[in-house]
Design a protein around this nucleic acid. Structure first.
Lengths: 370, 370
DNA sequence: GTGAAAGCGCTAACAT
DNA sequence: ATGTTAGCGCTTTCAC
């Protein structure tokens, strides 16, 4: 295979503009100490020759690689892809991350790593050595894995941790899980539900706890008893089946369920169907993931729309700013969610329930259909 | 920002193994002229030190960048993402491409380019200069764009063209569109349909033609008249509305429709619903994309499952083989599709239709529900 | 079969 | 404000 050279290099530009390599380099990198007229001369040459810096060469000598690595959990990501369950997390990350990267001359590379394996460290080191990313975007559960953050920090790589508030290197971003859970709960309470169940996510995800907190707080604020309404899941379909059953199999069963992700939501729908429960007449369901499986469900589900694209774009911005020496934000960056109202949530069926409604009627204002 | 060095370089390995840089380089690249004992010594050092070659450095001096670029149409990809219509083409490309790349120490970078813009050339050149990919995977409509293939070829980059059989540099891969259309048509004919319509895709996609060919051939083979049963679409939802209406608004309307992609399928479903047609009782619908929107439709749709992941994986293999100097395949690589039978296709309603059925009854063998 | 030297395209550090 | 020099980590070329 023939040796492939860059067709137009910084040398050609320098020669064409009649300046030194360094001056061209400064212009490319928007560094100071270049007179406007020089600037222009160089930029004109760049334009004329169609010069584009080689990322590889930039990385070789400089401190930047112009590469940002998006790290996702291998097992879960591959399973989602294979099963074609319509989880579009990676797609949305690409949408937000790639486009933002492109604005700044960066590229995003998706990398999968097994969190729970013994060779996380080895895998991560290999990825770092091969790619030399300027920054890494971590998603749960990687974002709270101290082994990973420590290694990245040691290598002086900027870290954006999505879905983690733990102390640690880099900056945190969240999708306001607590607020979202509160929003979801309030939505259902406003519809008149008193038995609002929550199917929580895997315990080792920080955000699972936040959602429980938000739900608990909102239940308390609404004067509702949350006794027996919390079911623990692990984000898998199977766990969703068990959890849903648990919420329905009790003396005073849930009339509305908030489900922490799309796969468990599928399970909840299936359990409801199997039991002959009509949605939303007999049971309201609200999903914490607005993925295709949820949007195209029958009936279309009311859902918390997680701004994955946006939060990823913000993560890219933070990393690039960090590279430029700007001070990272003190506080975690919180990207608010939206509640998309569809037809899976409605007032509970009139019956014994309604007889025991509190004196205060449900607020119709919060129940407007979007 | 501190200058970041590779922690373990080829030098460390060479020193540790007591050999020269070149010997290590040869081992890394599986080149000849290294004695087995040397091999082992070097490999042991690599293992011990946890050495991983830097892609940037490899690219700098050598002919390989270990980077494969997956090129998609910017406008359509972003629209699909934004609208969240559940098209998972990019996801599936990543699944197949990334994993295969990983097996060989390559990485895949997704890049978006506007096909129809004036600056295709400029955008492509910029991407090439920045990334220096060893190979590029082209999807329609890029795969048939001579401007693109010519530039890539000139830069000595391996080209895998998915969905194009036109003469040109690089190798072609298809998902057997003609055979798939034939399969779909036969499936419907076997159910007893005589008026099987096809909503074709955009004319400037080669595969649109192949599908028409397959459908035509199968119709002829089944002794069916295809008069008035071909409607042209352009893959957009809107075009799907018009095309569906055209197939239904005629003296002898279609009782089954094959739709060339998921968005037009959505349109077909909506038209049917609006007209009060029950699927599959009044109208059978078969989609040419098995994306989430199709799988989770009500009823779930019978669909051609395009093996995007697999064809991308094959493309990666071909590119890597090409880099290694292996001779590319003479013939286009054809990855077969599968027909996923769901509940949107059934025998046409018994009525005037059945009275005029040909003497030969529909073959039940081909109508087995999967 | 192995090693030494040269240089890929670019930037950091140090001149001027 | 601009230029010069010395590498970055690796592969290529060519000598041994």
């Amino acid at each position: 295979m023939a040796r492939r050279r860059q067709s137009v290099t910084i040398k050609h530009v320098a020669a064409d503009a009649g300046v030194s390599l360094q001056t061209v380099s400064r212009v490319i990198n928007n560094e100071p100490n270049v007179r406007p007229e020089m600037q222009k001369r160089v930029r004109d040459s760049i334009e004329k020759l169609g010069y584009v810096p080689s990322i590889a060469a930039q990385r070789m000598s400089g401190s930047r690689s112009y590469l940002i690595m998006a790290l996702n959990d291998r097992e879960r990501t591959i399973a989602d892809w294979r099963d074609q369950h319509g989880t579009d997390w990676v797609d949305q990350m690409l949408l937000g991350g790639m486009l933002k990267c492109a604005e700044h001359g960066y590229r995003m590379i998706v990398e999968l790593i097994d969190t729970h394996s013994d060779h996380v460290e080895r895998e991560l080191l290999a990825a770092i050595a091969a790619i030399q990313p300027d920054g890494v975007i971590l998603t749960p559960p990687h974002s709270q894995n101290p082994v990973i953050t420590r290694i990245l920090d040691k290598h002086n790589i900027s870290i954006a941790r999505i879905g983690s508030l733990k102390e640690g290197p880099g900056f945190s971003l969240t999708m306001d899980d607590e607020g979202a859970a509160r929003l979801a709960t309030e939505h259902l309470a406003a519809l008149g539900h008193r038995r609002i169940g929550l199917i929580a996510g895997a315990r080792d995800y920080e955000l699972s706890g936040w959602r429980i907190d938000g739900w608990c707080a909102a239940m308390a604020d609404a004067g509702l008893d949350s006794e027996g309404l919390l079911a623990e899941g692990d984000f898998s379909y199977e766990s969703g089946l068990t959890a849903t059953a648990a919420l329905l199999d009790q003396p005073d069963p849930a009339t509305a369920i908030i489900v922490s992700n799309d796969q468990m939501t599928r399970a909840a729908l299936d359990v409801a169907k199997q039991r002959g429960l009509i949605i939303p007449d007999d049971l309201s369901i609200l999903s914490f993931d607005d993925t295709p499986v949820v949007r195209f469900a029958q009936p279309p589900l009311t859902a918390i729309q997680q701004p994955i694209a946006e939060v990823t774009a913000r993560a890219v911005e933070l990393i690039i700013a960090d590279r430029r020496g700007q001070k990272p934000p003190e506080e975690p960056v919180v990207v608010p969610v939206r509640l998309i109202e569809r037809t899976s949530t409605a007032s509970p069926a009139i019956g014994v329930e309604s007889a025991s409604l509190p004196s205060e009627p449900p607020s119709p204002s919060a129940a407007q259909s979007g």
